[in-house]
Design a protein around this nucleic acid. Sequence first.
DNA 1: GTATCACTTAAAGTTAACTTTAAGTCAAGA
DNA 2: TCTTGACTTAAAGTTAACTTTAAGTGATAC
Lengths: 144, 144
Amino acid sequence: MTYSIGEIAEKLGVTTSTLRYYDKEGLMPYVDRNDAGVRVFKDSDIPWLNVIGCLKKAGLPIKDIKNYIEMAYQGDNTIDARLQLFIDQREAIKKQIEELENTLAVLDYKCWYYETAKANGTTDGMESAQIPDEHKAAWKRVHE
Amino acid sequence: MTYSIGEIAEKLGVTTSTLRYYDKEGLMPYVDRNDAGVRVFKDSDIPWLNVIGCLKKAGLPIKDIKNYIEMAYQGDNTIDARLQLFIDQREAIKKQIEELENTLAVLDYKCWYYETAKANGTTDGMESAQIPDEHKAAWKRVHE
DNA sequence: GTATCACTTAAAGTTAACTTTAAGTCAAGA
DNA sequence: TCTTGACTTAAAGTTAACTTTAAGTGATAC
Protein backbone atom coordinates (compact mmCIF):
# COMPACT_ATOMS: atom_id res chain seq x y z
CA MET A 1 0.00 0.00 0.00
CA THR A 2 1.32 3.45 -0.94
CA TYR A 3 0.18 6.96 -0.12
CA SER A 4 0.58 10.48 -1.46
CA ILE A 5 1.94 13.31 0.65
CA GLY A 6 -1.61 14.68 0.86
CA GLU A 7 -2.95 11.42 2.28
CA ILE A 8 -0.15 11.19 4.83
CA ALA A 9 -0.59 14.82 5.81
CA GLU A 10 -4.28 14.19 6.40
CA LYS A 11 -3.58 11.06 8.44
CA LEU A 12 -1.05 12.87 10.63
CA GLY A 13 -3.06 16.07 10.89
CA VAL A 14 -0.34 18.29 9.44
CA THR A 15 -0.06 20.22 6.19
CA THR A 16 1.79 19.01 3.12
CA SER A 17 4.12 22.00 3.47
CA THR A 18 5.05 20.81 6.93
CA LEU A 19 5.93 17.36 5.61
CA ARG A 20 8.00 18.84 2.77
CA TYR A 21 9.75 21.03 5.31
CA TYR A 22 10.53 17.99 7.46
CA ASP A 23 11.85 16.21 4.38
CA LYS A 24 14.05 19.16 3.53
CA GLU A 25 15.37 19.13 7.10
CA GLY A 26 16.42 15.50 6.70
CA LEU A 27 13.65 13.74 8.65
CA MET A 28 12.46 11.64 5.72
CA PRO A 29 15.34 9.94 3.90
CA TYR A 30 13.31 6.70 3.87
CA VAL A 31 10.52 8.07 1.68
CA ASP A 32 10.67 6.88 -1.95
CA ARG A 33 10.07 8.92 -5.08
CA ASN A 34 8.52 7.83 -8.37
CA ASP A 35 10.02 8.61 -11.80
CA ALA A 36 8.46 12.06 -11.78
CA GLY A 37 10.11 12.92 -8.44
CA VAL A 38 6.83 12.66 -6.52
CA ARG A 39 7.06 11.32 -2.96
CA VAL A 40 5.52 7.87 -2.56
CA PHE A 41 4.92 6.87 1.07
CA LYS A 42 4.67 3.23 2.06
CA ASP A 43 3.38 1.45 5.18
CA SER A 44 6.84 1.03 6.65
CA ASP A 45 7.25 4.83 6.63
CA ILE A 46 4.42 5.24 9.14
CA PRO A 47 6.39 4.18 12.24
CA TRP A 48 9.14 6.64 11.30
CA LEU A 49 6.63 9.46 11.03
CA ASN A 50 4.91 8.53 14.28
CA VAL A 51 8.20 8.35 16.16
CA ILE A 52 9.10 11.77 14.75
CA GLY A 53 5.74 13.01 16.02
CA CYS A 54 6.46 11.48 19.42
CA LEU A 55 9.88 13.14 19.68
CA LYS A 56 8.37 16.44 18.57
CA LYS A 57 5.74 16.19 21.31
CA ALA A 58 8.55 15.54 23.76
CA GLY A 59 9.98 18.89 22.66
CA LEU A 60 13.00 17.63 20.73
CA PRO A 61 14.12 20.13 18.08
CA ILE A 62 14.07 19.07 14.45
CA LYS A 63 17.85 18.98 14.10
CA ASP A 64 18.04 16.51 17.02
CA ILE A 65 15.36 14.35 15.42
CA LYS A 66 17.39 14.45 12.21
CA ASN A 67 20.36 13.27 14.21
CA TYR A 68 18.32 10.34 15.52
CA ILE A 69 17.28 9.38 11.98
CA GLU A 70 20.90 9.53 10.90
CA MET A 71 21.92 7.28 13.79
CA ALA A 72 19.20 4.80 12.86
CA TYR A 73 20.64 4.72 9.35
CA GLN A 74 24.14 4.14 10.64
CA GLY A 75 23.06 0.83 12.13
CA ASP A 76 23.84 -1.21 15.21
CA ASN A 77 26.83 0.80 16.44
CA THR A 78 24.46 3.63 17.39
CA ILE A 79 22.08 1.50 19.46
CA ASP A 80 23.50 2.80 22.74
CA ALA A 81 23.17 6.43 21.69
CA ARG A 82 19.63 5.89 20.46
CA LEU A 83 18.69 4.15 23.71
CA GLN A 84 20.16 7.05 25.66
CA LEU A 85 18.15 9.52 23.56
CA PHE A 86 14.90 7.79 24.43
CA ILE A 87 15.86 7.45 28.10
CA ASP A 88 16.62 11.19 28.20
CA GLN A 89 13.39 12.10 26.46
CA ARG A 90 11.44 9.83 28.79
CA GLU A 91 12.90 11.70 31.75
CA ALA A 92 12.17 15.03 30.08
CA ILE A 93 8.54 14.06 29.50
CA LYS A 94 8.15 12.90 33.09
CA LYS A 95 9.38 16.27 34.30
CA GLN A 96 7.03 18.03 31.91
CA ILE A 97 4.09 16.03 33.22
CA GLU A 98 5.08 16.79 36.80
CA GLU A 99 5.29 20.51 36.00
CA LEU A 100 1.92 20.44 34.29
CA GLU A 101 0.39 18.74 37.34
CA ASN A 102 1.61 21.63 39.45
CA THR A 103 0.28 24.11 36.94
CA LEU A 104 -3.03 22.27 36.95
CA ALA A 105 -3.22 22.62 40.74
CA VAL A 106 -2.77 26.39 40.42
CA LEU A 107 -5.46 26.57 37.74
CA ASP A 108 -7.76 24.54 40.01
CA TYR A 109 -7.12 27.02 42.80
CA LYS A 110 -7.83 29.97 40.50
CA CYS A 111 -11.05 28.33 39.34
CA TRP A 112 -12.10 27.97 42.95
CA TYR A 113 -11.08 31.59 43.56
CA TYR A 114 -13.21 32.93 40.71
CA GLU A 115 -16.13 30.59 41.39
CA THR A 116 -16.23 31.92 44.92
CA ALA A 117 -15.83 35.51 43.74
CA LYS A 118 -18.61 34.92 41.24
CA ALA A 119 -20.91 33.64 43.98
CA ASN A 120 -20.06 36.70 46.05
CA GLY A 121 -20.46 39.05 43.09
CA THR A 122 -17.04 40.53 43.91
CA THR A 123 -13.41 39.64 44.49
CA ASP A 124 -13.43 41.87 47.58
CA GLY A 125 -12.60 39.93 50.68
CA MET A 126 -11.02 37.03 48.79
CA GLU A 127 -7.66 37.76 50.44
CA SER A 128 -9.12 36.91 53.82
CA ALA A 129 -11.30 34.04 52.59
CA GLN A 130 -10.81 30.58 54.05
CA ILE A 131 -8.91 28.55 51.44
CA PRO A 132 -10.02 24.91 51.11
CA ASP A 133 -7.34 22.40 52.10
CA GLU A 134 -7.02 21.04 48.56
CA HIS A 135 -5.97 24.48 47.28
CA LYS A 136 -3.61 25.47 50.06
CA ALA A 137 -0.47 24.12 48.41
CA ALA A 138 -1.26 25.95 45.17
CA TRP A 139 -2.03 29.13 47.09
CA LYS A 140 1.38 28.93 48.75
CA ARG A 141 3.14 28.35 45.45
CA VAL A 142 1.46 31.41 43.96
CA HIS A 143 2.24 33.63 46.95
CA GLU A 144 5.91 32.86 47.47
CA MET B 1 9.66 44.44 51.44
CA THR B 2 10.73 45.57 47.96
CA TYR B 3 12.87 44.01 45.26
CA SER B 4 14.85 45.07 42.21
CA ILE B 5 14.20 43.62 38.78
CA GLY B 6 17.40 41.62 39.16
CA GLU B 7 16.23 40.02 42.39
CA ILE B 8 12.84 39.15 40.92
CA ALA B 9 14.44 37.75 37.79
CA GLU B 10 16.63 35.52 39.92
CA LYS B 11 13.68 34.38 42.04
CA LEU B 12 11.62 33.51 38.95
CA GLY B 13 14.52 32.03 37.02
CA VAL B 14 14.20 34.40 34.06
CA THR B 15 16.41 37.21 32.74
CA THR B 16 15.85 40.88 33.45
CA SER B 17 15.36 41.41 29.72
CA THR B 18 12.48 38.96 29.78
CA LEU B 19 10.81 40.84 32.62
CA ARG B 20 11.26 44.17 30.83
CA TYR B 21 9.84 42.59 27.70
CA TYR B 22 6.81 41.37 29.67
CA ASP B 23 6.39 44.84 31.13
CA LYS B 24 6.52 46.37 27.66
CA GLU B 25 3.86 43.89 26.55
CA GLY B 26 1.56 45.07 29.32
CA LEU B 27 1.90 42.21 31.81
CA MET B 28 3.17 44.36 34.65
CA PRO B 29 1.04 47.49 35.12
CA TYR B 30 1.03 46.85 38.88
CA VAL B 31 4.79 47.30 39.30
CA ASP B 32 5.80 50.63 40.85
CA ARG B 33 8.65 52.93 39.84
CA ASN B 34 10.82 55.14 42.00
CA ASP B 35 11.64 58.77 41.20
CA ALA B 36 14.44 57.71 38.88
CA GLY B 37 12.07 55.52 36.83
CA VAL B 38 13.50 52.28 38.24
CA ARG B 39 11.05 49.40 38.75
CA VAL B 40 10.40 48.65 42.42
CA PHE B 41 8.71 45.27 42.99
CA LYS B 42 6.71 44.61 46.15
CA ASP B 43 5.42 41.42 47.79
CA SER B 44 1.93 41.83 46.36
CA ASP B 45 3.44 41.70 42.85
CA ILE B 46 4.60 38.11 43.39
CA PRO B 47 1.18 36.46 42.93
CA TRP B 48 0.71 38.38 39.68
CA LEU B 49 4.05 37.16 38.39
CA ASN B 50 3.40 33.58 39.46
CA VAL B 51 -0.02 33.52 37.83
CA ILE B 52 1.57 34.87 34.65
CA GLY B 53 4.09 32.05 34.88
CA CYS B 54 1.27 29.57 35.36
CA LEU B 55 -0.64 30.83 32.32
CA LYS B 56 2.55 30.76 30.28
CA LYS B 57 3.15 27.14 31.27
CA ALA B 58 -0.40 26.42 30.16
CA GLY B 59 0.63 27.74 26.76
CA LEU B 60 -1.36 31.00 26.80
CA PRO B 61 0.22 33.61 24.51
CA ILE B 62 1.42 36.85 26.01
CA LYS B 63 -1.29 38.97 24.43
CA ASP B 64 -3.95 36.76 26.05
CA ILE B 65 -2.22 37.05 29.41
CA LYS B 66 -2.22 40.82 28.93
CA ASN B 67 -5.93 40.61 28.27
CA TYR B 68 -6.39 38.76 31.56
CA ILE B 69 -4.44 41.42 33.45
CA GLU B 70 -6.60 44.09 31.85
CA MET B 71 -9.73 42.26 32.89
CA ALA B 72 -8.46 41.99 36.46
CA TYR B 73 -7.94 45.76 36.43
CA GLN B 74 -11.45 46.36 35.13
CA GLY B 75 -12.90 44.86 38.28
CA ASP B 76 -15.86 42.71 39.25
CA ASN B 77 -17.74 42.88 35.94
CA THR B 78 -15.04 40.66 34.38
CA ILE B 79 -15.22 37.90 37.01
CA ASP B 80 -17.18 35.60 34.70
CA ALA B 81 -14.74 36.03 31.83
CA ARG B 82 -11.78 35.46 34.12
CA LEU B 83 -13.37 32.33 35.57
CA GLN B 84 -14.00 31.07 32.04
CA LEU B 85 -10.37 31.72 31.12
CA PHE B 86 -9.14 29.56 33.98
CA ILE B 87 -11.70 26.84 33.26
CA ASP B 88 -10.56 26.76 29.62
CA GLN B 89 -6.90 26.67 30.58
CA ARG B 90 -7.56 23.91 33.08
CA GLU B 91 -9.14 21.84 30.32
CA ALA B 92 -6.25 22.65 27.99
CA ILE B 93 -3.71 21.52 30.58
CA LYS B 94 -5.62 18.31 31.23
CA LYS B 95 -5.50 17.51 27.51
CA GLN B 96 -1.80 18.31 27.42
CA ILE B 97 -1.14 15.95 30.31
CA GLU B 98 -3.17 13.22 28.62
CA GLU B 99 -1.18 13.67 25.40
CA LEU B 100 2.09 13.57 27.28
CA GLU B 101 1.05 10.33 29.00
CA ASN B 102 0.54 8.79 25.56
CA THR B 103 3.87 10.14 24.40
CA LEU B 104 5.49 8.71 27.53
CA ALA B 105 4.06 5.29 26.71
CA VAL B 106 5.67 5.43 23.27
CA LEU B 107 8.99 6.49 24.77
CA ASP B 108 8.73 3.60 27.23
CA TYR B 109 8.16 1.24 24.33
CA LYS B 110 11.15 2.65 22.45
CA CYS B 111 13.31 2.30 25.54
CA TRP B 112 12.29 -1.35 25.77
CA TYR B 113 12.98 -1.72 22.05
CA TYR B 114 16.52 -0.36 22.30
CA GLU B 115 17.28 -2.11 25.58
CA THR B 116 16.38 -5.37 23.91
CA ALA B 117 18.34 -4.47 20.77
CA LYS B 118 21.29 -3.54 22.96
CA ALA B 119 21.15 -6.90 24.71
CA ASN B 120 21.03 -8.60 21.31
CA GLY B 121 23.79 -6.39 19.92
CA THR B 122 21.58 -5.64 16.93
CA THR B 123 18.14 -4.35 15.93
CA ASP B 124 17.83 -7.29 13.49
CA GLY B 125 14.86 -9.44 14.33
CA MET B 126 13.16 -6.76 16.44
CA GLU B 127 10.23 -6.68 14.00
CA SER B 128 9.39 -10.25 14.87
CA ALA B 129 10.21 -9.93 18.59
CA GLN B 130 7.54 -10.67 21.14
CA ILE B 131 6.32 -7.30 22.46
CA PRO B 132 5.56 -7.21 26.20
CA ASP B 133 1.90 -6.58 27.01
CA GLU B 134 2.61 -3.22 28.61
CA HIS B 135 4.05 -1.90 25.32
CA LYS B 136 1.49 -3.32 22.93
CA ALA B 137 -0.77 -0.25 22.93
CA ALA B 138 2.18 2.04 22.20
CA TRP B 139 3.39 -0.31 19.47
CA LYS B 140 -0.02 -0.15 17.79
CA ARG B 141 -0.11 3.63 17.99
CA VAL B 142 3.30 3.87 16.34
CA HIS B 143 2.43 1.43 13.58
CA GLU B 144 -0.96 2.73 12.47
C1' DG C 1 36.60 62.11 41.33
C1' DT C 2 36.18 58.17 38.92
C1' DA C 3 35.15 53.45 38.17
C1' DT C 4 31.72 50.01 38.51
C1' DC C 5 27.35 48.15 38.57
C1' DA C 6 22.53 47.81 38.14
C1' DC C 7 19.28 49.97 36.27
C1' DT C 8 16.70 52.60 32.04
C1' DT C 9 14.83 52.90 26.87
C1' DA C 10 14.23 52.12 21.90
C1' DA C 11 15.28 49.56 18.31
C1' DA C 12 17.38 46.01 15.92
C1' DG C 13 18.57 41.09 15.80
C1' DT C 14 17.72 36.08 16.62
C1' DT C 15 15.62 31.52 16.39
C1' DA C 16 12.59 27.72 15.38
C1' DA C 17 9.19 26.05 12.89
C1' DC C 18 6.67 26.60 9.82
C1' DT C 19 3.92 29.08 5.73
C1' DT C 20 3.44 31.32 1.55
C1' DT C 21 4.64 32.43 -3.04
C1' DA C 22 6.07 31.75 -7.67
C1' DA C 23 6.99 29.00 -11.25
C1' DG C 24 6.71 24.70 -13.01
C1' DT C 25 5.48 19.26 -13.97
C1' DC C 26 2.30 15.67 -14.69
C1' DA C 27 -1.93 12.70 -15.00
C1' DA C 28 -6.82 12.41 -15.50
C1' DG C 29 -11.38 14.00 -17.06
C1' DA C 30 -14.72 16.87 -20.32
C1' DT D 1 -6.89 19.87 -26.36
C1' DC D 2 -7.50 22.13 -22.37
C1' DT D 3 -8.46 22.63 -17.67
C1' DT D 4 -8.11 21.08 -13.01
C1' DG D 5 -5.84 19.45 -9.13
C1' DA D 6 -2.06 17.45 -6.79
C1' DC D 7 2.30 17.33 -6.84
C1' DT D 8 7.44 19.57 -7.27
C1' DT D 9 11.27 23.23 -5.88
C1' DA D 10 13.63 27.38 -4.11
C1' DA D 11 13.21 31.27 -1.81
C1' DA D 12 11.02 34.67 0.71
C1' DG D 13 7.82 35.79 4.48
C1' DT D 14 5.71 35.11 9.13
C1' DT D 15 5.26 34.72 14.10
C1' DA D 16 6.19 34.52 18.97
C1' DA D 17 9.11 35.23 22.38
C1' DC D 18 12.67 36.69 23.52
C1' DT D 19 17.78 38.74 23.25
C1' DT D 20 21.11 41.98 22.15
C1' DT D 21 22.86 46.44 21.35
C1' DA D 22 23.61 51.22 22.05
C1' DA D 23 23.28 55.05 24.63
C1' DG D 24 22.32 56.88 28.86
C1' DT D 25 21.14 57.59 34.34
C1' DG D 26 22.12 57.19 39.18
C1' DA D 27 24.01 55.25 43.50
C1' DT D 28 27.83 53.22 45.76
C1' DA D 29 32.98 51.79 46.45
C1' DC D 30 37.74 53.07 46.35
